[in-house]
Design a protein around this nucleic acid. Structure first.
Lengths: 221, 221
DNA sequence: TCCCGGCCGTCAGCTTCCTGTCAGGAGGAA
DNA sequence: TTCCTCCTGACAGGAAGCTGACGGCCGGGA
């Protein structure tokens, strides 16, 4: 379960992500509206915790843009206490739930859980690619029906490739997705990761297109 | 994927096109507003990166003219940081996204990718030219239905020619696109590349117009 | 607090093969 | 013919990628 926490106050953001991690979710943060919008638009999250007061791009705008772009993940909006206008607008814009600040962390977790449970009804949580089968909800991968143990990073790599099936993904894009382009890792890290993955998934699971990038093998579903 | 970069600063323009090329796109530049408007109006691009401060014809005007003329390609506007007025006007005028300068090249690429993906609803990822078939997502070329293995540089050359079908492309333009005109390669490099390509694609796939340039053979689809 | 195990980045060595360069040749233009 | 443009095969330097090994870091357990 991958959750995006959009919150500009670093301390609150850290608290929330810590609590979410403790509850078993993979939480990532965005510090401003632009970054949030962008990540929500290009990556796949199972839920978003969205603060409305954001620098650079207002939370409501972010929310609306996601919805008009067809992004359907559940969104939990954090509002200032008593800000009814905000709340109404948020619901109009497509929020699934709201939580007035300040709040107890337990309540946040409970609502997140409820939203995710509710959303479990529709989204296709399983991606198949050749002999591989990827359960995005449980973050599990199986090959030929038998489960494969993957490390978090390995899983994210496979997941990204699976979401971009039949496309050759250039190494730079993968590195950006895996490491968030903060500090350029020694380029070799990606190759080592791919090698480890191939050992687990089979050598032919991931195809290398020399000079182009990597591609997950497997005809479309 | 063909991208028009409208930017009057030659260095920035070169940086952007280089980055886009590295990401697998065929990038071309327009240096002023008039040229930009004309090319965007008469040719087909999959996306436009548009700087607003342009000589001869303002970027916003170009944008508006395109939209009123019914041109629907996604447009990513580059604005000066903090220029809120510009940004609002840009969105009003029909921009799909904006990016404040200065920006990280990675972010530009990522946004370009997002825009193209979002627009992917209609545009075909496959270009056909005679017996050749170019899959831009898998970065693969097939001839008469059977796949042909191309090196990255070979692919980019074919891709560029395919995007400029039925046009004779002068060698200088090809060299600029392939190598980014930093250091002039020995002219022969291009010829050697063409020779290698002909060996793989068939001698008549690429026509030489002596003194003018090269052209990909194949009736328009 | 210490130990252990897993994760993952780094390194070095190696293989593959891409691609620029060169030299010689073919063929069009004048 | 003569010149000039372009083609092509050969070759070598080096870039891109793979792999096994090593060790730092972190979290869990005693």
């Amino acid at each position: 379960m991958r959750i995006l926490v959009v919150e500009d106050d670093p301390r609150i953001a850290a608290d929330i992500t810590a609590a979410l991690s403790a509850a078993g979710y993979a939480a990532e943060t965005a510090r401003d509206g632009e970054q949030a919008w962008f990540r929500g638009d290009t990556e796949d999250f199972d839920l978003v915790v969205l603060d409305l007061g954001l620098p650079r791009l207002d939370g409501l705008t972010v929310l609306r843009r996601w919805r008009t772009a067809g992004r359907a993940m559940p969104i939990l909006v954090l509002t200032a206490r008593g800000a009814w206008a905000e709340r109404v607008e948020g619901i109009d814009a497509g929020a699934d739930d709201y939580l007035p600040k300040p709040f107890h962390m337990e309540e946040l977790i409970a609502r997140v859980r409820a939203l995710i449970r509710r959303a479990a009804g529709h989204g296709a949580a399983v991606i198949e690619a050749g002999v591989l089968r990827l359960d995005t909800r449980q973050m599990r991968v199986s090959k030929d029906g038998s489960p494969v143990e993957l490390s978090p990073l390995e899983y994210r790599l496979v997941s990204y490739l699976a979401h971009h099936r039949d496309r050759v993904v250039p190494p730079g894009e993968l590195i950006e997705h895996l490491y968030g382009d903060d500090d350029a890792r020694e380029a070799n890290a990606l190759e080592a990761l791919v090698a480890r993955l191939r050992r687990k998934l089979g050598a032919d699971a991931i195809e290398t297109r020399r000079g182009f990038g990597y591609r997950l093998v497997g005809s479309a579903t």
